[in-house]
Structures are given as C-alpha cells and as structure tokens.
Simulated scan of single mutants.
Amino acid sequence: MEYRRLGNTGLKVSALSYGAWTTFKTQADLKQAKEMIRACVDAGVNFFDNAEVYADGEAEVIMGQAIKELGLKRSDLVLSTKIFWGGPGPNDRGLSRKHVIEGTQAALSRLQTSYVDLLFCHRPDPDTPIEETVRAMNHCLDRGWALYWGTSEWSAEQIKQARAIAVRLGLQPPVMEQPEYNLFERHKVESDYAPLYDSEPGLGLTVWSPLASGILTGKYGGGGGGTAAPAGSRLSMEEHKAKLDSRAHHIAAAERLKPLAAELGCSPAQLALAWTLTNPRVSTTITGASKVEQVRDNMGALAVLPKLTPQLVQRLEHEIAQALVEAEQAK
C-alpha cells in the first residue's frame, strides 16, 4: 500500500480507502462488513469513511461493531464521519452549532469510538453562517472528538471564507475536502480548487465515486449501445435506478476503457481507480464494494498505477472525451 499525506497535515492515509456509502446495512450485513474490512486492512488500508446519513446511521453502527469484533487497534485506523443529514427534525440537519455538536456525539456513539480522525461538513449550509460552523467544528476539535475538520462538496469560495474566518478568530481552518472525482467529473478538483492546494493550510482530497457509481467498471453496458443494471449492482437499487438511463452517455464512454485495460492486463475498475491516483493532489481514493472479491479487485489498482505513463493517461483521457462528444452528437 502507498500512504500519502492528507494535504499539508502530518497525517498519512492509504492511497486507496474504503467507504460505507450505499453498502453497509443496504447491501452488506455485519458479517459481510467484517470480511470486507478485514480484506481492506490486510491490503494496507487504514482510512475508513462514513457519514451520519448513510443508512440512517446504521452504516456507522455496523462499522463500529465490525472494528470492535475484529479487534483492530484504534490508533492504526483513520476514521471519518460527515455531518449534515442527521434526522427529520428541524435541528437534526445542517451545520448549526447545535447539530454539529449533537450529530458528532451521536456518530461517535454509533461508531463506538471516542473520536474520529476526520470530521467533515457533508455539504454547505446556506441557512447557517459559516462563522457559526467554523466555531462549532473547532469546538469538536478542542473537545478531542475529532482531530481534523474539513468539507465535502463545498465551493472554493466557501472554503476560502471558512479559512479567512478561522484565521481571524485564531481557530483551525478546514484542511481537507471530499469531492466527487472520476473520469467524468473533473472540474472541481482540477480547476476550481487549484488556488487552494499550495496556500496555507493546503487542501487534502479524499475523493469519492471514483468509479462513477460503478459505471467505469463497464458492467452496465447492455450490448448494442444499450444499458442494463446487473442484479445487486448500485444502479439496480430502487433509489438509484433513475440514474441508469440518464447516464447512458457515460455508460457508452466507459466501454472505451476495456481495450486499454486489456492492454495493461487489468480490469476497467482498476484502470479508473489508478487514474485518480495519478493526480498528486489526491490524498486517498475512497473505494466502495459490497463483496470481498470487489475489495481485492479494487486494491489491484495500485499495481496499475506505475504503468500509467503521461502518454497513457493522455490517451485514456482523449478516449473518454471523444466518446462523450460522440454520445452528445448521437442524441
């Protein structure tokens, strides 16, 4: 396993990590979760991502219990959670001081830990002043409930505002961001955040959906340019079915990965995951899996990374871009 610094911090996270989104409770029970976490740890993964909203908190419950039953050493792990959607009540969501503090305490209870290493604001909250959120996140740090705080899917301008407020108040600014990043979704990571990486305090990226909800695995191609969702796949789930037809152009473009993957002797998933890690700004790529076999296949991306020369990366990106243009023209 390769370990990378989280931005400019001294914390090191595994280049490939594992997240519980849409998996724990929904697709995997405690027994399966233990098997996948064990496979991740055996591969050198140390970062495990979660959120209060995942399976309405049950994903945190399963992860916490799995870690306990596996007897894993807490200091060997980097655990995260994200606060925003905590329940149906008017104060159970958002980034008010009340919800940040109560949501964090509830998450720690579900995870059976006294602290998380990373605490994220899961989305920006237009109803709460950023200063209130900055103060609340620092309260969590001061109490030892979290070691670092950051954001998820915030704009560069919102992160700049949070940083400026923290500096003015003598508080800790956000040091990491969790954006979507894959071959189809690149602008925020590669352009919008560009001014933030080298300025204090830097910005570590824990990127999500590197396989674009599984589309970049190539498993959704239905043949003849159609689409199909294999049983048990993410886009076969009721809450995600609507995405299938709306992303037909992405599904068609993903077919372009197959010849390149065959050339490199890897799976399309491994190729797409390795591509995210060619970006040195990415601290860790969060993988998702509902089966141990998928975990092991994902971990194989590290062996592909050294094969991705600048020329190969350029070729890969050109193939995807060309496929998207052709799909747009065919509409």
Rank of each mutant, 00 (worst) to 15 (best):
I62N: 04
L277S: 10
K12L: 14
I67Q: 01
G214P: 06
Q27M: 14
A59Y: 04
T23L: 10
G265Q: 06
A253T: 01
L257Y: 08
Q161N: 06
I62Y: 06
A261K: 00
L302S: 06
R168W: 00
S14T: 09
Q329T: 11
L273D: 02
P88L: 12
D297R: 03
G10C: 05
E58H: 02
K243V: 08
W21R: 02
A269F: 10
Y115Q: 10
F184V: 08
Q27P: 07
A164H: 09
P88E: 05
I159L: 07
E58N: 10
G288P: 01
Q329K: 15
T287L: 11
T81A: 09
M299H: 02
S155L: 11
A164P: 04
G300S: 09
T309L: 12
E317K: 08
K241A: 11
V175D: 02
P124W: 00
P280Y: 11
V167C: 08
G225F: 13
L308E: 12
W208P: 07
A194Y: 06
P310K: 13
R143C: 12
T227K: 11
P280T: 13
G57F: 02
R315M: 09
V313H: 00
L273K: 10
D56L: 15
T22M: 12
Q158F: 03
I37Y: 06
A254H: 06
A228T: 15
H240K: 11
S236Q: 15
L16N: 04
G87A: 14
S290V: 05
Q105E: 15
P306A: 13
T9W: 09
G202T: 07
M63H: 03
A39N: 08
A261P: 00
R296H: 09
Q27E: 11
N182W: 03
A39Q: 02
S233W: 05
A252F: 03
W85P: 06
K25L: 06
A156F: 04
R110P: 00
P310G: 10
V41L: 13
E132W: 12
L118P: 00
G19M: 05
K31T: 15
T113P: 06
R97W: 04
V167I: 15
V100D: 01
P201L: 14
G222V: 06
L277G: 06
T81N: 14
E255M: 12
A194F: 08
G202A: 08
I101L: 15
Q65T: 15
W208G: 02
H187Y: 13
E60D: 13
C40V: 04
P310C: 13
Q161G: 09
T287M: 15
A254V: 08
G150N: 06
P201E: 11
A43Q: 04
L16I: 07
V207L: 09
A28H: 01
W275M: 05
T81G: 07
A229R: 07
M137R: 03
P259G: 00
A321W: 03
D192G: 06
Q32I: 11
